[in-house]
Amino acid sequence: MTTTVERPLEKIPVAGTSRRRPGRFRKHLWSYLFLIPMVLLFGGFTVWPMIASWWYSFFNWDGVGTPSDWVGLANFREVLGADSFWRAFWHSLVFSLAAIFVELPLALVLAILLNNSWLRFRNLYRLVLFLPVVATTAVIGIVIAILLDPAGGLVNRILLDTGLVDQPVNFLGSTSTALPTLLSIDVWKGFGITLIYWLAALQTVPKDLQEAAAIDGAGFWRALRFVTLPVVTPIAIVILLLVFQRSLNTFDLVRAVTEGGPDYATDVVPTYIYRYAFDPSLQAPRYGFASAAGVVFGLLTLVVTLLQAPFLRRRLGGGKA
């Protein structure tokens, strides 16, 4: 059922030919042909711009013409020495922690529930949970501001009426509540995407097994543990990476709701970079510095990911062999 079982069978013929390299490559000729479009598109529009931005990060450059004012590592020194950068980095990290430890498991639970064919209206539920994803962020920004307003907003009115609080909560205006509030909105807005990914992942589990598991209550947990989760794991790793990456790049929402404030309590690295690269109020954009901040951010998150790698590898088990 799972891939691990089949692997040894597959390996036998491969082992015989793998010593002779030309044969090995000919065997994979088609695979390499299949990779060409991806390598071209990805190389041209992701890898190259990335390398270019590394190059720019060594310059004092405003983004126009050819960079010429070489400053060596000065931009990097400035980024690493800036408290504001580390503060933004920490906030970005908090966003990803919330996504991984709150959004991801919750979405899985709901996906398992909404994947049951016996559940009526499940398509409607899916649609509802998905709608925030496509709601225009800027409009959501103002709707949220109106709903959470400490002077007469709906949420505060409910909290006051039910006696949960005795003073209106300044959700977005206080440095202590702004970040948690924004995190919740982010989970709300992104939940639907994660849900869809989980639903797709669950499709890889053969249906008869799911049905059997659902009917037999006791078997449900065992099926989940021994059938569903192992089958889903390879894709689950991708989903984890995806959610991690998306949460690190939270940008629109922060811009629309708090613009990084108050007192930079919700500043994240993408808004930090944007301020230096594109802010229209800047006399001359500091594109080189923004690139350096991007490079440092990328390297730092890579390190964080590598720290998770042993855990991921264990989880992956035989899947990747």
Partner: peptide, 20 residues
């Protein structure tokens, strides 16, 4: 007025117009 800490540049006139 509470919440001003997160107002954008065009919020004050709305609150003023609303008589708040």
């Amino acid at each position: 007025m509470p919440g001003w800490e997160s107002w954008d540049g065009s919020r004050a006139f709305k609150e003023f117009a609303a008589g708040r």
